[in-house]
Write a protein that binds this DNA or RNA. Structure first.
Lengths: 304, 304
DNA sequence: ATGCATCCATGCAACTCATTCATCGATCGA
DNA sequence: TCGATCGATGAATGAGTTGCATGGATGCAT
């Protein structure tokens, strides 16, 4: 069978033109190479070199094999290099999973500087998981889960990277627009607009309305943040979104934000990873970058 | 060092998902594969597979290596296949060298059907040689020499494949146009047009004029047959060309051909090859095809 | 023409390395 | 809980590779 050693042999022999010098280059003996060529020729059933005086000349079959070696051998070397990089955690694929709509928008702020400094890391962002984000993490379907709901499990690690406040969004001329804060009962006559996910995963329900036993008059769902805010601005309903996310739109869409409850609804974004990957450089680097990115814990601390 | 066996191992292991079944496919034992994986992992300095219950899962490094194997292993198989074809003479590169202008035109007739039946043979036609056609043949610069001047040398074989007659070409209204044949002295008042090669290689000189001690009034050279015949047609001179070659133009250019001497000047085209290559199928096939191609010996024999 | 340096080929001995066998622990399904 | 199956491991075996010594061939220089 054609082996890699044969490729190196053919390549060096073609380059040097003699067994003796090729042997020197390959750190072997002339005899070993002579034996090797002979054996390979027997295996392939054809001469590869024709003895020409006291040097060698490639046969057509040898020329083909030599060209093959010239093309393939460097790929082996490159593959070994890349695998060494992966082994050192300098290169890899970071597959990020999202479990909340606003997370996507936030993670872009981290990804942008990350891809500039980690050119050898391929990024892959997924949003749908058959068995939920945690399951995808366990099944190695993704390497990092961006979520506001950490679920402590053995083998996983969740790191808070971003504190934010979930607020109510209303139109500029809404009756609640000038209130310091709203209470759950204030939302009972309202139409509530949310992303189309299970109610249990909506903070406005799980952390605000349901504990008080309240429900809005109507509940409609919208995929995109843009359109959601357009509807809110036109007075068609109210929504609950991260304060920082709404801030990105207030210059173009006339909406106001109001605190949910006297003390507000505090949220965090967590990055979930497998503890096995704690030593992987480029994953640790992403978490570190996320922590120090604008709008993260640190930035907010200086603001508060 | 990453070897081809490792490629097959990774490929089969990734496909089968278990050492045991991969071992069956590879005709080896589970133990051998286990040892091999372990050793490879030590060499590369990284895990390639993570034990998952009682099956295996690829690590990032393993996934990369597996993808590499998936890409490269088939190329090895293809290379072995091609080399086997070359060994059987079913595939190769036929480098043909030309030593005369009309040869090129004639060889096209042979090449055309040849490339249709020998799709695995690359053809290469060259016309300039540092040390002459014979030298190029010896130096393996070409594999076949098309020439009217065979030079018997040890290690070379020349096969006549085409008989033709060299004739004088004159304009339709030329004084010599109606002669049955011309003698050397007839050309002394003429302007002779030839290809731009050494006089020794021009049959009209070496086989007709020089033996009789004659020279034409003027001697001019032209690269292309087309223009040469145009000049002849306009009465600017006479030329000596193969009869079959002129015949290809007579329907478009008004010229006449006249025999050179009472018995004509007979010529042959030879295919020269190295005797070492006599067993190479596709070279032998070319010679055989050349012999039976229209306008060759056989065809001429039927013509009488 | 002759000697010398250099090249490749080859036989044999030594050794390296991959493979196998036998066995163990772990896991999964019945 | 038992049995089947999977991968891991250690020791022994043997095939295959390597190196040494040597011989024959070739080309260059004297």
């Amino acid at each position: 069978m054609l082996e890699r050693t044969h490729l190196n042999l053919m390549r060096e022999l073609a380059r040097e033109g003699s067994l003796t010098s090729a042997a020197r280059k390959l750190g072997s003996s002339q005899s070993a190479l002579s034996h090797a060529v002979r054996k390979l020729e027997e295996q392939l059933g054809t001469k590869l070199w024709e003895r020409e005086g006291r040097s060698l000349r490639l046969t057509p079959a040898g020329a083909h094999l030599s060209a093959f070696a010239q093309r393939i051998a460097p790929q082996f070397e490159h593959a070994e290099h890349v695998i060494a990089q992966i082994a050192r955690g300098e290169r890899g694929t970071l597959r990020i999973g999202m479990e909340c709509h606003p997370c996507y928008r936030w993670i872009l702020r981290v990804i942008e500087p990350y891809v500039r400094t980690h050119r050898d890391v391929d990024l892959d962002v997924k949003q749908k998981f058959q068995f939920g984000g945690i399951g995808a993490l366990f099944a190695h379907e993704i390497d990092m889960l961006v979520t506001p709901d950490p679920l402590r499990r053995k083998g996983l690690r969740f790191e808070p990277v971003f504190d934010y406040e979930q607020v109510l969004v209303v139109s500029a001329d809404h009756a609640l627009a000038r209130r310091a804060y709203v209470v759950p009962a204030d939302l009972e006559p309202q139409t509530l607009i949310t992303y189309p996910v299970e109610v249990e995963r909506l903070d406005i329900f799980s952390q605000f309305l349901l504990p008080a036993g309240c429900t809005p008059k109507r509940h409609v769902t919208i995929e995109t943040t843009d359109i959601m805010l357009q509807l809110v601005a036109s007075g068609r309903g109210v929504a609950a979104l991260p304060r920082w996310l709404v801030k990105e739109y207030t210059s173009t869409i006339p909406v106001r934000v109001v605190r949910l409850g006297r003390h507000g609804v505090a949220k965090q974004i967590f990055l979930g990873t497998r503890v096995d990957d704690a030593a992987v450089d480029y994953i640790a680097a992403f978490i570190k970058l996320a922590r120090t990115t604008q709008g993260s814990r640190k930035a907010r601390a200086t603001r508060g």
